[in-house]
Design a protein around this nucleic acid. Structure first.
Lengths: 352, 352
DNA sequence: CCGGCTTGTGTAAACGTTTTCCACATCATA
DNA sequence: TATGATGTGGAAAACGTTTACACAAGCCGG
């Protein structure tokens, strides 16, 4: 009945005194309830609740030698931070972690500073028990570092050039773009260009590979002047699309390694009076929020980032619990969501 | 010369022994360098560096009774998380905090759960020394709670219904929309509609007030059927714009309380074959990344969230240092950035 | 030449937990 | 009734810091 007390500074000692037991017992009630008799357990729980007792995390952390915290480093680029990926991931991570009673430590890495230093600060400063590594690169020095130090972590995305096994959850860009390209081929397209991502990123090669495979299977020869590399920005999509469209023989479809570049392509089309989904088909990748408000709404590959975040937490928890890496490698297939930016090619069209 | 040692478990005792001093001296060297003689200081620093010593934050936190951590609670709505606001803010906070040697604890608050519980967990669980409160509401129970408990915090945005003073940094929505409305008036518009935000949010009233003031000063009577309230989503902008445009006497300009709704308005216009910036002018608020890629690019009010984040850290630091609230209340004026979605009204136009 | 002040360092006591012993009942069993 | 086995709870030792206090040495002015 007693309502909450001014829980200003109630520690385990206070609870113990109030309940007429030793602090060890209080601790046991909270951490190993089965090792204490039901009567005392009930009594302790009651007084703890009455006093509003919350174990001080720092005492706990110090004693247990753990941080009870998981880290995430977000690179924060110079300009606008258009990247909702991290926010979605964050939501998933946060939900999963709070259920597990762990804290989430977020460090942002300013553009200039080297990223690895941020990781070092968290790891060597014992601020986290484990980490989530996002946006993996082809050879990812962060992963190499964490493996070398034996720090538990999970990666969102693979890093193909790292031999040693580690836990990851990846979205299958190869399969995704294989499906996207097949969609275009089935619509009748044969002149399909590809605007890719910097080779540094691991996913860049996977996506390109999906595109190649689909075309080769369909007997469509690859054209080297239709395989471009952007920097993932809207601007670069716009620029590269301009080049493609001005060429004597422009493609009838353009596949983009991310939505931002696809939006740039849409802009380039609009400027030339071309309609996406009619004269030229465009497919993106990521399904960022803007995609559905684009004109026309962008056909793209959806990646369930929030769900990925939740799953990553489960995997990390397993890893922290000592589970072997073997069972902790997953690849999900992104879903092709059809909107308005793709359609059958229009045979008669010709533009300079 | 000696290169880094296997810094696996080097604690202050180890450094002390190696340097031939007591642990107190090592601690002093690190925390109060001036209280130790230059010679020993140099010797200790050298050995600490050689051993790769990093003070264990948990020991420190326990002893000092502080968490050395600042908290931020991000509400994570159900659907897509289109809100780059938090990411920008996060970047600013992260940069500022890491300079100050503080950690940033991010908690995400799932839609169902009550937000206050998240704050309570952080505060009463002694997980943070201070908090940043974003997206303040007209009467903000989070602020009331923090004030009541005497927890240091800074708010991004004001909460008008709270009497007691507290530190905040706000963007002046009144002034912002006053300027936006004046811009439209100067272009010659007289039929200006307003799509606002839920009254629950504090900024909603400020923005509306700016709109009203500008119109009243210009002698333009307010029309109640032109003052609408959306829910900040693209969808609601689209829907409300539809209503405005179908009316017998549609407005020539629409002011929106955020960019997302403005994008919805643009979509509604496109569907009706109307061009934003020609037949109807549209101005948004926030300058989200999508704004510059919209068709046409959206004229809007820019809010420097990252800079705000940095400043908020400074303010919070001052507050943690015991500075009085008085000097910690700032209001910045957002900047009107002209893009393509506004223009002079076209007198002869009429549509059903 | 001595009391007091300054300067530099060491000793030891916290900070609030968890956990490893141990001690003590209680109880069934021989 | 002695003897383990079992269950329960207490005492105390960590975990790695910071800091109040004590102490020794050196310096100063009287």
């Amino acid at each position: 009945m007693g309502h909450a007390v001014s829980s200003q500074n109630v520690d385990i000692r206070r609870v113990a005194a109030e309940a007429g037991v030793s602090i060890a017992t209080v601790s046991r009630v909270l951490n190993h309830p089965e090792r204490v008799s039901p009567e005392t357990r009930a009594r302790v729980l009651e007084t703890a609740a009455r006093l509003g007792y919350r174990p001080n995390p720092n005492g706990k952390r110090l004693r247990k030698g753990r941080a009870e915290t998981v880290g995430l480093v977000i690179p924060s680029p110079q300009g606008r931070f258009a990247d909702s990926f991290f926010l979605e991931l964050l939501a998933g991570l946060g939900e999963g972690l709070s259920e597990a009673g762990l804290d989430l430590l977020v460090a942002t890495c300013p553009p200039g500073s080297d990223e690895l230093a941020c990781y070092r600060r968290l790891v060597e400063g014992k601020r986290v028990d484990g980490l989530v590594v996002a946006r993996t690169r082809r050879y990812d020095e962060r992963i190499a570092y964490l493996l070398e130090r034996g720090v538990p972590f999970v990666a969102h995305g693979r890093s193909d050039l790292i031999a040693e096994p580690y836990p990851y959850l990846d979205l299958d860009g190869r399969e995704g773009f294989y499906r996207a390209a097949r969609r275009l081929l089935q619509l009748g397209h044969r002149a399909i260009a590809y605007i890719g991502a910097p080779r540094e990123f691991n996913f860049a090669l996977h996506r390109l590979e999906g595109y190649r495979q689909a075309l080769l299977e369909a007997g469509v020869p690859l054209r080297v002047d239709w395989i471009l590399e952007g920097d993932l920005s809207e601007e670069s999509g716009y620029r590269l699309a301009g080049g493609l469209l001005e060429a004597p023989e422009p493609p009838t479809a353009i596949l983009c390694a991310n939505d931002l570049m696809a939006l740039g392509v849409l802009r380039a089309l609009r400027e030339r009076g071309l309609r996406a989904g009619r004269e030229v088909s465009v497919i993106g990748y990521d399904d960022i929020p803007q995609a559905q408000y684009a004109d026309p709404p962008l056909t793209t590959l959806h990646q369930p980032f929030r769900e990925a975040g939740r799953r990553l937490v489960e995997m990390l928890l397993a890893r922290l619990g000592g589970a072997p890496v073997a069972g902790l490698q997953e690849v999900w297939v992104p879903e092709l969501v059809l909107r308005g930016s793709d359609g059958p090619p229009q045979g008669e069209r010709r533009f300079p």
